[in-house]
Simulated scan of single mutants.
Amino acid sequence: MDLATVIGIVLSFGLVVSAILSGSSLIIFISVPSFLIVIGGTLGAAMVNYPMGYVIGVIGVIKNTFFSNLESPVNIIEQFKDYANRARREGILSLEPLIKEIDDEYMRKGLQLTVDGLEPQTIQEILETEVSYLSERHATGADVVAVLGTLAPAMGMIGTVVGLVQMLQTMSDPSSIGPAMAVALLTTLYGAILSNLVFNPMAGKLKARSKEETLLREMIMEGILSISKGENPRIIEEKLNSFLPPKDRVSSD
């Protein structure tokens, strides 16, 4: 669970709700027509902009802002130190029994290619292709969420225009002015909240998470290539440490 995402959402929505409750009731800020205009319009416009599968898949994409299953870089370095030492002592084939125990599919695939005896250049090409398409998929997911953040306030403005038109057409009936004005203002509020407190921050988190995972994949690829070349475990450790900030680097025993 990503605590930063949870704390950020609770904090931002909590402060907004607290500000509302300090001056009035929360009920007056609830409008079903406004909600339908913003949510329905945003999703509908997103479906026009992207294929259906992309929009449906955004649920899983948003889930990635709350949950992170990335392996610790320090643990990865320790793993490769162990693999490199084992490969030097017992040969590269000694890694084959360990492959099934690896949870990370990318690392498992790379080590399997190494054990199968492929040339380092071929392994690198395969793994680089994996990283390239991973980055592309992540970028698409973040773009869909960012588009939702762009569309939400636009739908809010549409709702505002609808409410104003309704209000102007019923100026002779004072009792109808209030509800129409509420729709006009609340749609703008809903759109602004969804855009600035939900979709745009989540798109930023997804882009940052994608960079982290790409860097992790590049670290794993460097370790696999070093093992396939039979490099010294100490050299492998130094190479992988170069991916980390100085304060996080693994020190040799």
Rank of each mutant, 00 (worst) to 15 (best):
S175F: 07
S94H: 06
I220A: 13
V161Y: 10
F13K: 08
D116F: 00
I158R: 11
N49Q: 15
I235E: 08
L93S: 08
P33I: 10
M167V: 03
L186F: 07
D116T: 02
P174S: 13
S18E: 11
P33K: 10
A87T: 02
A182C: 06
F67T: 15
D2V: 14
E222P: 01
D104S: 12
V10S: 15
A87E: 03
I220Q: 02
V147G: 00
E101K: 12
S135V: 14
F13Y: 15
G14V: 02
Y54F: 12
S94D: 10
G8C: 08
I92D: 00
V32P: 06
K229T: 03
N75Y: 09
A87N: 01
Q124T: 02
T214L: 02
R86V: 02
L127E: 05
P73N: 01
G110Q: 09
A46G: 04
L164N: 14
N69F: 05
L95D: 05
F80G: 03
L151Q: 08
S132D: 13
L244Y: 01
P120A: 13
G204L: 04
S12T: 15
A87H: 03
V198D: 12
M52H: 11
I99A: 09
T170M: 11
N69G: 06
G191F: 04
N196H: 15
I177M: 15
I62Q: 12
P179H: 03
V16L: 15
I236D: 06
G110R: 10
L168E: 01
M219P: 02
V165T: 02
D173V: 07
E238K: 06
V162G: 08
G149C: 12
S34C: 13
D143L: 07
D253W: 15
I126G: 00
L113C: 05
E78L: 14
M167G: 09
L164V: 15
E237Q: 10
Q121T: 12
N69A: 07
L93E: 03
E231M: 03
T187F: 10
N200P: 01
S34L: 05
N85H: 11
T170Y: 00
Y133V: 00
E101P: 01
R234N: 00
R209G: 03
L197V: 05
N196K: 10
A46P: 01
L225V: 15
T140G: 02
M47K: 14
V147F: 07
F35W: 04
S135R: 11
G23D: 10
G91Q: 14
P246N: 10
G141L: 07
K109F: 04
P120I: 08
L98A: 12
M1F: 05
A152L: 06
K63H: 03
R137F: 04
V38W: 15
E105P: 03
M202E: 02
S132Q: 11
P174Y: 01
